[in-house]
């Protein structure tokens, strides 16, 4: 069974009415790392919201077509139920932290899963450890630096241990050490058979992906092996995905 199936997906937000996603179809197999690239405003974040079921459950607007994650149709399941399959890290770290301490933030998801206390404790330790933020354990997440906030948001989702991970530009604000850490985590997760979708502008970061999806103005422009797409300089330059400086 495919981890993600998107079939003829079109979407427009309520207020503008402009179609943001236009008839998009693709599938992602379990254990694949897929990178989603495209110019700013082309609809990448919108697509991520569709995968998590936030569209159509929280944001109105018009959605046609079908999205399913691990066999669950996003229209039929609630966001919380979809969260058992997909972990979503949003682009803006400030909208995803609400607990008094970092530890509580990371504990939140496993607590919702009704895990036993020892398991919650060990997940927190593990997540803090692999992200290298153990020192921040007792800090207030809203009083951290931008990059630290992103790491905590990432940790809160990793503690959910979802089969599918969707990361909306989480690497952009990280220092080289942080980028390397996340890179290693992603490769490790792939080893464990998890499916990962990352949104990213930096083509260097994209190179860990197996496959690349290129979005332009809401259309799926290209869907191919990472090596082929990234080696096609002419295509990248033509669509402004790479620039000579």
């Amino acid at each position: 069974m495919d981890a993600i199936v998107v079939n003829q997906l079109s979407y427009s937000y309520q207020v503008s009415g402009r179609q943001i996603l236009k008839n998009i179809s693709f599938k992602v197999a379990p254990g694949e790392i897929v990178a989603l690239i495209g110019l700013s405003g082309c609809g990448k974040s919108t697509l991520c919201l569709c995968l998590g079921g936030i569209i159509p459950h929280y944001l109105g607007g018009e959605l046609t077509g079908r999205v399913s994650v691990n066999g669950k149709d996003t229209k039929e399941y609630k966001v919380a139920q979809l969260a058992l399959e997909v972990g979503l890290v949003f682009q803006d770290p400030d909208t995803q932290l609400f607990s008094p301490t970092v530890e509580d933030e990371i504990a939140f998801a496993p607590e919702n899963l009704c895990l036993p206390v020892e398991e919650i404790g060990s997940r927190i330790n593990k997540v803090l450890d692999i992200l290298g933020i153990s020192a921040l354990r007792k800090e207030n997440p809203n009083r951290l630096s931008g990059g630290q906030k992103h790491l905590v948001a990432m940790g809160a989702v990793l503690a959910l241990e979802p089969a599918i991970l969707v990361l909306d530009e989480v690497l952009a604000q990280l220092d080289p050490v942080g980028k390397k850490t996340i890179n290693d985590i992603l490769l490790d997760l792939r080893q464990q058979g998890k499916t990962i979708l990352i949104v990213e502008h930096d083509l260097e970061t994209v190179s860990i992906a197996d496959r690349v999806l290129v979005l332009e103005n809401g259309l799926l422009l290209r869907d191919g092996q990472a090596e082929t797409v990234l080696a096609d300089r002419e295509f990248l330059l033509r669509h402004k995905l790479e620039c000579e400086v």
Partner: peptide, 16 residues
């Protein structure tokens, strides 16, 4: 403060 995050390569160049 971090003006290039969220910008695509093309917009980065425009910013530059």
């Amino acid at each position: 403060d971090e003006p290039t995050t969220g910008l695509d390569p093309y917009r980065k160049k425009l910013l530059g």
